[in-house]
């Protein structure tokens, strides 16, 4: 080599491909063995789920890509994705899937798995905390609205104690306390 001898070697490709060794080929089976995963492998990548999704345009990873990633075994990326938590659970994708894949329900399974492994957004933990502490997600804050409607300030008959008691011993309770 002459004067360009010290030039750095160019990479073979400009985008690093995902190497086969990075794929978790057991992930598909893992999801498939969960309550909603039976039809997962029937997916033929038509992407109807994505065209049905009302918010897919703001998703970086689209619904059909998540399903294909599960099948392919790109585990980390699916479970750490923000998209599974952004899902509105409107079930449009699941209703329309021509192969009966339970897309929304599979995202629930993914959320449960991600939670088990500690990959849960802080905002979701905060919601859990709210539930555990107050027994409800939305407490009455604007009393004047009830007043304007001639209603008494407290919701009659509302008791959140039972909810708090039950939730405390569920996974949500453990999650908020910081356990697994």
């Amino acid at each position: 080599m002459t004067e360009i001898g010290e030039k750095k070697e160019l990479p073979d490709v400009f985008i690093d491909p995902i190497d086969m060794s990075e794929l978790d080929r057991g992930f598909r089976k893992e999801i498939q063995s969960m309550p909603n995963g039976e039809e997962l492998s029937a997916c033929f990548a038509c992407s109807t789920c994505t065209s049905a999704c009302p918010i897919a345009n703001i998703w970086e990873i689209k619904p059909h890509q998540l399903i294909r990633m599960i099948i392919l075994g790109i585990r980390e990326k699916v479970l750490s994705s923000k998209e599974i938590w952004l899902c509105l659970t409107c079930f449009e994708c699941q209703e329309r899937c021509p192969q009966g894949v339970r897309v929304t329900d599979i995202f629930f399974d993914c959320k449960n798995l991600a939670t088990e492994e500690g990959m849960i957004p802080a905002s979701i933990v905060a919601l859990g905390k709210e539930l555990i502490e107050k027994g409800q997600l939305y407490t009455v804050t604007a009393d004047w609205e009830r007043e304007d409607l001639d209603l008494e300030p407290d919701v009659p008959g509302l008791s959140t104690d039972a909810v708090k008691r039950v939730l405390g011993s569920t996974r949500t309770g453990r999650l908020v306390k910081g356990g697994r």
Binding site: I18, M20, A45, L72, I74
Partner: peptide
């Protein structure tokens, strides 16, 4: 892979 939108080796 058009399904996941990723380049695989």
């Amino acid at each position: 892979d058009q399904g996941t939108g990723s380049l695989l080796r």
